[in-house]
Write a protein that binds this DNA or RNA. Sequence first.
DNA 1: CGGCTATGCTACCCGCGGTTCGCATCACGA
DNA 2: TCGTGATGCGAACCGCGGGTAGCATAGCCG
Lengths: 216, 216
Amino acid sequence: MTENTATAADQAKQDDREAKRLSILKAAAAFFNSRGFHNTSMADVANALGVSKPFLYYYLKDKEDLIFQCSRIATQELHELLDEVRSAEVTGWERLEMLFRRYARVMTTDFGICLIRSTAPGSLRTDSREQLWTGRRRLNREVEKIVAEGIADGSIRSCDPRMLSFAMFGAFNWLSYWYDENGRKSPETIAEDFLDMFARGVVRGKGDEDAGSRLV
Amino acid sequence: MTENTATAADQAKQDDREAKRLSILKAAAAFFNSRGFHNTSMADVANALGVSKPFLYYYLKDKEDLIFQCSRIATQELHELLDEVRSAEVTGWERLEMLFRRYARVMTTDFGICLIRSTAPGSLRTDSREQLWTGRRRLNREVEKIVAEGIADGSIRSCDPRMLSFAMFGAFNWLSYWYDENGRKSPETIAEDFLDMFARGVVRGKGDEDAGSRLV
DNA sequence: CGGCTATGCTACCCGCGGTTCGCATCACGA
DNA sequence: TCGTGATGCGAACCGCGGGTAGCATAGCCG
């Protein structure tokens, strides 16, 4: 029983620690996204949390570790998302829809934005960027594979999977640069618009004829 | 005549000066794009050119002025491009095609990439970013207007112009993050692929039926 | 109660890099 | 030939900010 209470106490400690770590990451991510990584000092983060600088180093190795941990949360989220999508039994295109609908939401969170920024070329100098980068590359490859499957199953028109993947990731990643929380559209609504454009195309006469209004 | 030679000499001086300024900008842009702005020191740029650090300050105010001048070259290019496109007498969609075909090329040059990076939120702290940002906003607005015209003239299906603008800019801006000069595709080829996807859509059965191969 | 570990802070260090000062050099007109 | 302005550099300055050493406190177990 003493052992029980001991482990219970330890558990509480661990939870507390994890909560603190997360609040640090959240504060840091907000700073990074508004001011940029290099324009944010450790003192900024510490002050925002009402703690001291050394406090931070109790939870992380160095400054790069900070943005790395932020970004890793996003990559984990994305890979869970990918697993769900892959296990669904639908056509290739429907898979893409599932994926990007939720991808849009992730790319408007602080951690998601962190991921986009931190994997940009030249943002980080250490190999932590490599890890994040390979994570995103894997996602790219998976989407290319989904596109290829979509072409095979007939749900997607013949095209270069790599190009479609880049086009869609481009459109959705760009969200993180312009999305405004106080705007009128939710990430889901935006995703719906984007997916519709990619699905049907935007040129009149090449896509469908606007629900038959022309065929009378 | 003395005056002639004087002004001619002056002209040569000016040209020389301008050439040097450009070579500085070119070297700096290359560094910024590969290592990032904050990971590039003035010493790096100076060394690459075989000159001293103070030399650089003879051609620019401070480090931010450096990336500002790089980006401004790209914005000027874009606005010239926009003028040409606006003066063409074609449908809205064809205008978009004209614009983005060349936009893709710009976004794979060092100065274009600089522009994208330097206008990212938090990259620069001074008001020079504001100038560049408003330049890009103007471009956004213009494209939204072109889309609206396209809807009006019937070349583009009814949609939210703002969303189509963001989707296309997203896809094309993203080029600057992954484009590889040694890759197999030229910016023009990529633009062609992207434009085709946006025009016709990628979902089979909603777009056209792949040139009739199915209708036999 | 006394020691030990976890936790946290104040105060400091110190290197990097943007910026500048003061001196060489040199083309060129008088 | 000498003065002068444009051009360029070596060397130093110095402030910012990441990272740390060493001390305070407090819960907790023996």
